[in-house]
Computed example of a mutant assay.
Amino acid sequence: MEGCDLSNVSVVDNALSLQNKIAAIRRAGPSKLQVIADFDGTLTKYMVNGRRGQSSHGLLRQENPEFDAKRKALYEYYHPLEFSPTIPIQEKTKLMEEWWGKTHNLLIEGGLTYDAIRESVANSAITFREGVVELFEFLEERDIPVLIFSAGLADIIEEVLRQKVHRSFRNVKIVSNRMIFDDDGRLISFKGKLIHSLNKNEHALDMAAPVHEHLGDVDGVIDDSASVKKRTNVLLLGDHLGDLGMSDGLDYETSISVGFLKIALDIY
């Protein structure tokens, strides 16, 4: 498939409907708009330099390689089940809860430290899609909130922003699995409800923390949770069918969903 590049190809089911939605969002203005985005494979690239990019879970390396191997074994067992077309959704949801729960326990048992997170991100093959930083800047200038909703790890997402972008955005909040560390920087537990790939929804908004608070910025937050819920026009970005549920609990007027196709091409 010489010269094949699908990075700029888009497929629209109903072009007229899309144009009508765009017009409605423009008429309502920035004060009614919010962006809800998945992180891994959506804001970040699926392919990096011709190879599969890493996720916020996948890039993590513990000081004890034994626990990396155990987490990899869980991935190899559960990942095919996640995309199985024959497993009912309720059963699949329980399997995802098992997978994430076991993985989090291994991180605690293996004595994960924040220093290991910093080093893992520094050595990772993870990068943002072209235009993501510019999009965040554009939205920040217009006081449009961005909710990053991820089944990954909030602390790693923040470290990726710190190391790859070198700044934070006062309009960005993260809803993800957040770690709790002791005074020595060692992981001891996780905060709040477990978020996996099939239970994303905006009922977990109370877990959101502004990125700037963790990266050391002192500016105020543009929106609190209540005002975000009043923004009834939504741009939803994801790469998994489960991401369609990220706006559940939000009484929106107009919603545009954008799906990013995950594909690896062999170039002959």
Rank of each mutant, 00 (worst) to 15 (best):
V121R: 07
V218E: 10
G185Y: 02
K200D: 02
N14A: 08
L205E: 02
L241P: 10
T42L: 00
R129G: 08
K164A: 04
K200R: 06
I126Q: 01
P80T: 06
F169R: 03
T93P: 03
T44E: 02
T93Y: 04
I180S: 11
L106S: 06
V121A: 04
S176H: 08
N8C: 10
G50N: 11
R61N: 14
K72F: 12
D251T: 06
V132L: 00
K70C: 01
E119H: 12
T232P: 00
K193Y: 05
G41M: 03
N123D: 15
E91N: 12
M207I: 03
I157Y: 00
H79Q: 13
L187I: 00
K45I: 00
E130A: 12
Q34M: 14
E76V: 04
G3D: 10
L237E: 02
A24G: 08
V234N: 09
G242N: 04
A24T: 08
E213H: 11
L235Y: 03
K164H: 13
K72E: 15
D115Y: 10
F149I: 01
L215Y: 03
R178I: 04
E253A: 07
K230H: 11
K72D: 14
D68A: 03
A116H: 10
I222C: 08
E158Y: 06
I174Y: 02
S56C: 15
L139W: 04
V211T: 10
N171R: 09
E130V: 07
S10K: 15
L43Q: 09
D251I: 01
G192S: 14
D248C: 03
G216E: 05
G152Y: 00
G41A: 08
G101F: 05
L244I: 02
D183E: 15
L153C: 04
D143R: 14
F190W: 15
I22Q: 12
I22A: 10
S257E: 06
V165W: 00
F138P: 00
L153P: 05
I263N: 13
D266T: 07
G53F: 01
A37K: 06
P85N: 13
S84E: 00
L16N: 11
A125N: 14
T103H: 02
E134H: 10
